[in-house]
Design a protein around this nucleic acid. Structure first.
Lengths: 119, 119
DNA sequence: CGGAAGCGTAACCGGTGGGTTACATATTCT
DNA sequence: AGAATATGTAACCCACCGGTTACGCTTCCG
């Protein structure tokens, strides 16, 4: 996971990941989006490869790069442990209580909002 | 968000964040957990402070550090866009709307699916 | 076969990051 | 007031990172 964090720290590598988000690209196509030299891109791609965030497939003289979404999970989970204030918990709690309330109402045959309806 | 990614890239800083996960600590207490010199820790703390991941409160001659969970969200969301499996956001949304629809229908006495509307 | 195309690696180089020691500053204790 | 405590800053050093140019290896194509 250390490699993933390091890989993500560089802005060029982050842009590469964004480029690969929904399409597959060759090294050359990726390089076209940047001003820096192709060897520089090549090394960024190696870092991404070794971190596991990206996989490559050799096709003739080209190399097709694509995301490997599996390796994002570890870092996401690590970060999430600090993010207890994020609304997930609250949304979950809200949904949970709503479901329970609905079940209770079904059981007792009462209407959804007890106070506004008697029979 | 660039600063956050850079802050997280260092293993010492990641351990500091873990230390601060559920308790508040002074700079000295934090430094006790590491072999490196205190000035080194002090600079790591500055990086964390400037990235917004951590806040400090001066108490006498001590500085109490604590997490600022708000700033983790941006990076988490950015990472999540790549992780399809972590795509339970969509599943959750679907479940949420489903539950709400069910309750609404019960309340109005309508049938489960609008297209079957009795009228 | 021979040149062009597509990529990666090697060697080099300047800037930055993270470590250290020495020092400055503010607060607490006696 | 003066010593000890808690912490940050400054100056310095070395290792690593990210950039460049030069080069090597395959693969495609005339």
């Amino acid at each position: 996971m250390d490699e993933v964090a390091a890989a993500i720290a560089d802005p060029v590598r982050r842009r590469i990941l964004e480029l690969l988000r929904d399409r597959q690209l060759t090294a050359g196509r990726i390089a076209e989006h940047f001003e820096i030299s192709r060897p520089a891109i090549s090394r960024h791609l190696r870092v991404l490869r070794e971190s596991g965030l990206v996989r490559d497939a050799v096709v003739g003289r080209e190399r097709h790069y694509q995301l490997d979404p599996a390796h994002f999970g570890d870092l996401i989970r690590w970060l999430s442990q600090f993010d207890q204030s994020e609304r997930w918990e609250r949304r979950f709690d809200a949904l949970e209580t709503e479901v329970h309330r609905t079940r209770r109402e079904r059981r007792t045959g009462g209407s959804p909002y007890p106070k506004e309806r008697t029979a």
